[in-house]
Design a protein around this nucleic acid. Structure first.
Lengths: 237, 237
DNA sequence: GAGTGGTCTAGACCACCCC
DNA sequence: GGGTGGTCTAGACCACTCC
């Protein structure tokens, strides 16, 4: 049995995307939806609150729920920051990876802290370039603990680590902290991403967690500045 | 009367911040909290779910709710992307603004689309440099409709637009879409932010909305690459 | 006053985890 | 089996907006 709130969420989302509810339109009030889906108000509210979090609608006491506009122009590769997905999914499977380095090292203080392990514990040290249609887009330094994620091979790294973790190891990925900044490109960026001296990179530092709270990946990604943008929707309070 | 879920949320958050619940610790289960606050499970769940969204705890069916670690090093000025605040608050009030340009222009197609007005409608064209301790940090181009936000003056711009909107006009700010990217610094960046040729900027393009869904501000901010970082917490699905 | 959403209750049943 | 969280109900009362 499918979750009711998910059915309501999907029903309304579909209506927004296919313009059944155009921008600015009022969507059905809670009571009406309760009848349509024969459920209680709390269930409708849960579904609607998910749409609020996503920035698709806003709600106002005494007035109703309305479709929000979304208008900033879209870049070539857009990452929705609150959607946690691996590179392979972000690029709709059109991407592949070139492994530049794959070895075991002793964890530094910083890596150990990020992965919640001891300094000098073994960690995978992985450096990959991600390609879309054979054009380099991202250079990604990854550290993972072999205790948490065993059996990583070069073949796994050339595909999707996230698929390996979820499908092969049957672990569930839960969440991630990301910090975004800009940086001057270095020699490796010039060589691997084909950038000029004055062209910068967009840097994302990330710690990803399994759904049991264990950090499993600490990574630093350097993106071509002209091809990547990150979008996020913020709510006041 | 204060909202119950907010009291529970604040109680647990305080406990996490003051280490009453250290990283990895289990926080009280829902039933226990129901008794402590004499409320129903739904109310505790709402409070706990807010903590999940913030990345402070994770919860697992059959096990419990646990404090998450948060470990990436903090930059000089960190903006939590999901917290929608103006520059003045982000810098703890230590900032001020220098107004480089303040005039009315006809809205371009792009501005009109962002602000949901007609092309050639009048809009404020505002260019400001934000300073902290007299050091320039950000250069910000802002467009707003005088129909939505009337009475803006140079004095308002030197302080906080957001305070003016909320305190003077008594409008409520609801949400914002932001898109983050990196860019090569241009002549204005060099002059106003004191950057060298090869030093990039971190660009944030934003549309901010009032709580009735009206877009009131379209802005493009160019931040010094070495002083700003943006953090975000993402949940899978 | 009618209609809307916000909060809250006091239960229920189920899925999952660990013992 | 006992403890946990996830979903859901069928109400209730309140706050806000518009007429």
């Amino acid at each position: 049995m499918k979750k009711k709130y998910m059915m309501i969420y999907e029903d309304v989302k579909r209506g927004i995307l296919d313009q059944t509810y155009p921008v600015g339109a009022q969507i059905p009030d809670e009571k009406t939806m309760c009848e349509k889906f024969s459920c209680s108000r709390m269930t409708v509210k849960k579904a609607y609150d998910m749409l609020v979090m996503e920035g698709l609608i806003y709600r106002k006491q005494g007035q109703g729920s309305f479709v929000l506009s979304r208008d900033i122009e879209r870049p070539e590769v857009e990452i929705k920051e609150r959607e946690l997905i691996g590179f392979t999914k972000a690029t709709s499977g059109a991407g592949r990876s070139k492994v530049l380095r794959f070895q075991l090292i002793f964890a530094t203080e910083k890596i150990a802290k990020a992965l919640n392990i001891k300094p000098n514990d073994p960690v995978y040290d992985i450096l990959r370039v991600r390609l879309i249609k054979d054009r380099p887009y991202v250079i990604e330094q990854t550290y993972m603990s072999p205790t948490v994620i065993p059996g990583v091979t070069k073949e796994v790294l050339e595909g999707s680590i996230y698929s390996y973790i979820e499908d092969e190891l049957v672990l569930r990925i839960g969440a991630a902290q990301k910090i975004t900044s800009a940086d001057i490109s270095n020699d490796i960026d010039h060589k691997e991403l084909g950038l000029q001296d004055i062209e910068p990179v967009l840097v994302v530092e990330q710690i990803a967690f399994l759904d049991n709270g264990t950090p499993f990946e600490y990574s630093i990604s350097r993106h071509r500045y002209d091809l990547f943008k990150f979008s996020v929707y913020s709510l006041r309070r």
